[in-house]
């Protein structure tokens, strides 16, 4: 299966969007060639502001651009885009509800060799708690392209997270997504798996393994964790009742937590969460880091059978 990092999907779509809409600006903080906003910068040099290694300033500048009608994408590694810029994103982007897209490359454990300092395991949770903020993670190259376009057409602040490392391509160019709506990959009756980002491909593998044992799986790509598609979660509770969540994010305050909030308030349904076990990563091969945290098809199958 072809593998490609989702930041490459972001790169390709930004160049297309830049041709169509001259309001789009990119605010970079020195790492454009790593986050892949450099293609846009080369194509539209006047619409790239590179502030150097100064993330908080980058966020404020993006806010200022947005007040003048621009659609700025402020781009960094997910860890810096969420935590280093955090208060600026809150005060100057989310509070005034400005049309700024905060782009985090290198999400989750995907900058595997870089180690814990660059692996972003808290970002979606942090962004999720900020009012007005929409939080998105595409599952492959094509969804990265389609969701980059979708957030551009969506008015308001968005945090979108890409992978540094290559992950399987699971969709094709005909796939479509709507912000805030779960994308059903397959329907099934015995267990619901809700995954996002680079774990969706693992959930697909798990679903195949379960189907081989006559366990029927409903599989949802929950690319938007805020606003969460509550109706899709409730439908899974009503029809199936058993949900496994899978994410490349700390087990605290990410997709699994968001689903659990719905389940708890709905008063029925059961959830098992698979994700990073509230511990920092380390330098290693990406697949090993995922194994160490139990984010594997085998672990999903095991969880399904233990219900």
């Amino acid at each position: 299966m072809e593998k490609i990092a989702t930041r490459m999907g972001f790169a390709a779509e930004m160049v297309e969007l830049g041709k169509e809409n001259d309001k789009i600006f990119v605010v970079d903080a020195d790492i454009s060639s790593s986050c892949k906003s450099d293609g846009f910068a080369k194509a539209f040099p006047k619409r790239q502001i590179n502030v150097g290694i100064a993330e908080q300033n980058a966020a404020g500048i993006a806010a200022g651009l947005a007040t003048c009608g621009k659609i700025p994408f402020v781009v960094s590694y997910a860890i810096f885009a969420s935590l280093r810029m955090c208060e600026m994103v809150r005060q100057e982007i989310a509070y005034p509800n400005l049309n700024v897209k905060v782009v985090g490359s290198h999400g989750g454990l995907s900058p595997a060799a870089d180690g814990a300092s660059h692996q972003s395991i808290e970002d979606m949770g942090v962004m999720r708690t900020i009012p007005n903020m929409t939080v998105v993670m595409p599952a492959d190259y094509w969804s990265a392209r389609k969701l980059t376009r979708a957030i551009t057409n969506f008015e308001g602040p968005v945090f979108i997270r890409f992978t540094r490392d290559s992950i399987p391509v699971i969709y094709d160019e005909n796939v479509e997504f709507e912000i805030g709506k779960a994308h059903m990959i397959q329907d099934g009756a015995d267990i619901a798996i809700i995954a996002n980002g680079d774990t969706v491909c693992r959930a697909i593998e798990a679903a195949k393994m379960l189907e081989a044992e006559n366990i029927s799986v409903r599989l949802l790509d929950m690319h938007t964790i805020k606003p969460l598609d509550v109706d899709a979660v409730k439908a899974a509770i009503d029809k199936i009742g058993k949900i496994i969540t899978v994410e490349d994010h700390n087990i605290i305050n990410g997709l699994g937590t968001a689903v659990c909030e719905v389940v708890a308030e709905y008063g029925k349904g059961k959830v098992k969460r698979i994700g990073i076990q509230d511990k920092f990563g380390e330098s290693a091969v990406y697949e090993r880091l995922m194994e160490k945290n139990g984010i594997t098809p085998e672990a999903i199958v095991k969880a399904a059978k233990e219900f």
């Binding site: 500048i61 200022g64 651009l65 007040t67 621009k70 208060e87 100057e92």
Partner: peptide, 30 residues
């Protein structure tokens, strides 16, 4: 905050307003 007519950006967390002002100045020049 921007619910008040005439306020161009919310401020209150120090150091941030000037960054926003830079963004505005860039946009106006562009």
């Amino acid at each position: 905050n921007m619910t008040c007519p005439g306020i161009d950006i919310p401020t209150g967390s120090l150091g941030q307003g000037i960054a926003c002002a830079v963004g505005m100045a860039i946009a106006l020049k562009a």
